[in-house]
């Protein structure tokens, strides 16, 4: 399966991953090789096989809804790059410059 640079750019946008031109080309080549190998799964007839997402066989794990100690705001912000007035600072996600909704 040969990927194109356009494929790489599409996936990188979905993943919010900035790639340099050299990385885009390397990604195209390396991912194409890996996808070729992975494509071998198509050999297997799995029409009647259920998918496995987890091996625990557990469903609906509940806990009591009781008040527990929580972090202080200092702890919550201790690794934050930008903080103002008790909030994480981000660029406006909607309606701002470069918005592409």
């Amino acid at each position: 399966m040969a990927l194109t640079l356009a494929d790489v750019d599409h996936v990188a946008t979905l993943a919010r991953l900035g790639l340099t031109d050299a990385e885009r080309e390397r990604m195209r080549d390396q991912l194409s090789v890996i996808l070729d190998h992975i494509g071998e799964l198509a050999e297997l007839d799995t029409d009647s096989i259920p998918p496995t997402a987890s091996v625990t066989n557990m469903t609906n794990v509940w806990r009591d809804d009781t008040v527990q100690p929580s972090f202080t705001t200092d702890q919550v912000f201790q690794n934050a790059p930008r903080v103002a007035e008790g909030c994480f600072v981000v660029r406006t996600p909607l309606g701002g410059e470069g918005d592409e909704a």
Partner: peptide
């Protein structure tokens, strides 16, 4: 300048 660029550059 934009949040999308901020994500992409941070992760890149």
């Amino acid at each position: 300048p934009t949040i999308k660029e901020m994500y992409e550059r941070t992760r890149g």
